[in-house]
């Protein structure tokens, strides 16, 4: 087990370094340099700025300077916002995105898992059909459509919830639902097929034959095994929340990292794009690693890295 964990940590680190390298290479293959502006700046200022950002160094040196900065937790300075570091941007906006993401995860688990269980236990009854119909819709409707629909119904028509910004607990509701929609539907489908598979197994029949009440059989015996596949979905789920946040935060004008990222793309703020991508990548690789390790612990049949 220790070897497995070590192996997993090692390959994650390699992956992150490779992603940093690719991102760095991509960012520096753009024609022109980050100081290219519409208005020509005086040669001396340009020279000084080039020196300040190490842009006059050869590329491989810049790469190592960047790596060294990353290792000490320094991701450079935003080129758009004067004097703001990428670290500050992430530190300020990531907690908001994280809050939103956590609420969304809570929603999708609280809706997706019970919906999946109910439709598996009432297979081919109306509860099942209803839940699966909604789940199919949920998988098919893109998050920006869901978000705008919610805004139109609950924000504009009914006026119950604020349509944008991040001010009270009410402003969390719509964005987190929009963010959770797809994954909740996916989890419901996953849970349903997993529960269906488990309740056909011999040990469930044994438990029923022992005379245990239905409730105990389902909640104590079946669910424990049926929910294991959900754990594997936690990796893609985090990724989904993250990419979803780009759109949802933009629509609802939430000052989270997703919106910063999208804005930095339109502003061509290369250091921020580079920094946030590296941050996202490391975060996701780390999450995937945790999921793999947790999976290895809870289900001894699977040791992913063997």
């Amino acid at each position: 087990m220790f070897k497995f964990v070590l192996n997993r940590v090692f390959s994650s680190v390699i992956t992150i370094i490779l992603i940093i390298t690719i991102t760095f290479a991509l960012m520096h293959s753009i024609p022109g340099d980050p100081l290219t502006r519409d208005k020509e700046m005086p040669e001396q200022i340009r020279q000084n700025l080039m020196e300040k950002y190490h842009l006059d160094e050869p590329l491989w040196k810049q790469y190592f300077i960047y790596l060294k900065g990353l290792a000490t937790g320094d991701m450079g300075i935003s080129m758009k916002y004067q004097g703001v570091t990428v670290n500050e941007i992430i530190a300020e906006s990531f907690p908001i995105s994280a809050q939103l993401g956590l609420v969304a995860i809570a929603i999708m688990l609280l809706i997706g898992i019970p919906a999946g269980i109910i439709s598996a236990l009432r297979q081919n009854k109306w509860q099942d059909h209803l839940a699966m119909f909604l789940a199919t819709l949920g998988v098919a409707i893109p998050n920006f459509v869901l978000a705008t629909l919610l805004i139109y119904i609950f924000g504009v028509k009914l006026g119950w919830l604020p349509t944008s910004r991040w001010v009270s607990w009410k402003s969390v509701i719509m964005p987190s639902i929009a963010l959770a929609g797809y994954s909740a539907a996916y989890i419901a489908r996953l849970t349903r097929s997993s529960v269906l598979e488990v309740i056909q197994q011999d040990y469930i029949r044994t438990a029923k034959a022992k005379g245990l009440p239905e409730r105990v059989v389902v909640y104590k015996h079946a669910l424990k095994n049926a929910l294991i596949p959900i754990v594997t979905y936690l990796g893609p789920l985090t990724a989904g929340i993250l990419t979803g946040s780009f759109v949802v935060e933009k629509i609802f004008a939430i000052p989270g990292l997703g919106q910063y990222f999208v804005n930095s793309i339109s502003n061509r703020d290369y250091t921020v794009i580079l920094g946030v991508t590296v941050f996202y990548a490391s975060f996701l690789v780390f999450m995937n690693m945790i999921v793999d390790i947790v999976y290895g612990f809870i289900d001894p049949r699977i040791r992913v890295g063997k």
Binding site: T15, I19, L26, A239, T243, A281
Partner: peptide, 19 residues
């Protein structure tokens, strides 16, 4: 492939679109 796969493909697409 794993390296591409470990972060959402859309992030790479965005990076490429930026360029």
């Amino acid at each position: 492939v794993d390296m591409f796969y470990s972060i959402p493909l859309i992030l790479y697409v965005i990076l490429l679109m930026v360029i």
